[in-house]
Nucleic acid binder design. Structure first.
Lengths: 190, 190, 190, 190
DNA sequence: CATGAATGAGCGTTCATTCAT
DNA sequence: AATGAATGAACGCTCATTCAT
């Protein structure tokens, strides 16, 4: 069991650093201090290992997503929670985040692949979360009457772009988060 | 000469679709309708071809960047120009844009590689452009007194995140651009 | 383990016949009745296989060299032992001998390569052995006062030249060895 | 015409340094400062260039061989002439000598190849020259009654071995030649 | 649970060579 | 006389994967 974990965490490191295709199973095994066939014993294939990693990441991600409070004083607070959650997630799992966002263009191309489905899924959930916030906020007069779809897209892109940044220093993160929330409040709140 | 162009445009298509590592020289040659060794005749190596493509893209990119008007009525107009420029660029060169942003994680890891240098360079120019805007805007009272560094980072991330989206429909783009500009105006202008 | 041996002996045959550069790894594998990647599994590279062969040969060679008796009735007997040793070695390992002497000019060019170092090493040991014989023989009056360095060089060249001859018939060898020893005795002994 | 000569002399240098197989036509062309197809224009193929070089070398070689004086005071003088001639040849054409002796094991394997034929030819001429010397010398009482075939073989090997040595300093050569002649005189003369 | 040995498929690259110009 | 463009064939090598142990 120890070995299995060693393999996944080695794979996470290397996939994040070099991408899926430029990471050989041999290098993963070596990094984990085990032999190559063990990958196939535990995960059936390189792709299986990748899928396993993605499943783990997204399980964590959706767990946290589900844990976001349903009721908040204002709609803007809901957005704050969402953004904060993504900042934290990228802080806690930088490699995993980078894998999800950048590591495997070829697998995202194939819509049938689990990888693509997870990513699509995540995009949809975020979109829904954001657009529902906006709609309610606009209806209640909390937000200015911004165009919902486009603003949703822009917020999604912003969060995505922010998560791609690797290796921020902790103090920068706090400043950045504050600036982002302030920026959005000014932009949105009536 | 025709063949050389066929090779680069085939490579652009395939690199954008599958990433550098998952694209074989054989597939590039086949797509271009020529034989594999021609790649090495014209570009020395697969890496040479990639570098050539990047050089071409960035030459185009920086040409347009340099063409942005220095003087504008307001600082916010400067920001509008920058954002518009990036939207247009991603519209005109979607594959090239995607390559720059996503196609080769392994090459970005190696700081010495031309690819990494170009990307770093581009990031620096944008950062400088944005932060100078903000500073002047704040000084003149045009902008609220936002924290310059963090806001620069957030705007950069936003533009980056927006450029990564592939295959937007044209009508969406217009709406998105409008929403983005409006969003930023509200957030920044005093 | 069997397969590894099959590979080395196939390589020895083919390197001796055609030289290093004109021998493809595919032909070695085919000759050994295995697949090509096995070469890389066992020896890392074609060069690694070559080096492995050289190491084996020279281990054998120096073992026999070290086994030459230190004390002999006369200094000429020491020379006899040396020449006889080389004849026997070339008889027992004709392919290996030919490889060492002729198979890889490019590798001998690069002084840093193990191959070049082994060859240089062997030359030095023989030179020392011969010149010490000559010095002692001359001092004791057993040999005529020949110039030591030049005579060492000529004996070395002679032995080398003799070892390069491939496919001598056995009866020729005996006659040749006798003639060589007689020739040298007449030339050297006072 | 100038270009043709540049090609041959470049080829001689590179063939001598790295052997036939490890020398690419591209490197020859580059070294000569011309383009690759010129090799095929002038020599039809890489093999043709090699053959052309060998023909040139052997033409020179046999010219000098033929110029050796038929009549000499003693038979030993004839041997002296032969050995001296080979020393001089190796001095004057070190690269060419090395090519003939060492550069192309694969081509010597194929008995039908011009290369193998030239080498065989040269061996036969030398053998005949030496053995006739020995026979006449023995008959006349100038030489001891050595076994002709074996002694011929040993002298041939010695000369061959001596010619293989690259980069001797000039003063060494003189000493070596003297030692060789003295050695042979003592060994042979009654 | 874990590995050493082995492989088929495919990789990027180099080769000598051809041919239109 | 000489070359730029192009290629078929072969190169050494790496890949993910399998299988007996």
């Amino acid at each position: 069991m120890d070995r299995k974990k060693a393999l996944t965490s080695a794979a996470v490191k290397l996939f994040a650093a070099n991408g899926f295709d430029a990471t050989s199973t041999a290098s993963i095994a070596q990094y984990a201090g085990v032999t190559e066939p063990l990958i196939h014993y535990h995960f059936k294939s390189k792709d299986g290992l990748f899928t396993h990693i993605l499943e783990t990441i997204f399980a964590l991600y959706f767990d946290r997503f589900d844990a976001l409070p349903e009721k908040t004083p204002t709609e803007f607070d809901k957005l704050v929670n969402l953004i904060r959650f993504h900042f934290r997630f990228a802080e806690d799992y930088p490699d995993e985040t980078y894998i999800v966002i950048s590591a495997c263009p070829a697998k995202l191309q194939d819509a049938a692949h689990v990888c693509a489905q997870y990513v699509a899924n995540q995009g949809q959930r975020m979109s829904r979360y954001i657009s529902e916030c906006l709609e309610r906020g606009i209806a209640s007069g909390e937000f200015r009457p911004v165009p919902v779809d486009a603003t949703t897209g822009l917020l999604l892109a912003m969060v995505n772009g922010l998560m791609r940044r690797k290796s921020l220093r902790l103090d920068e993160i706090e400043g950045l988060l504050g600036a982002v929330l302030d920026f959005c409040r000014q932009a949105l709140c009536a």
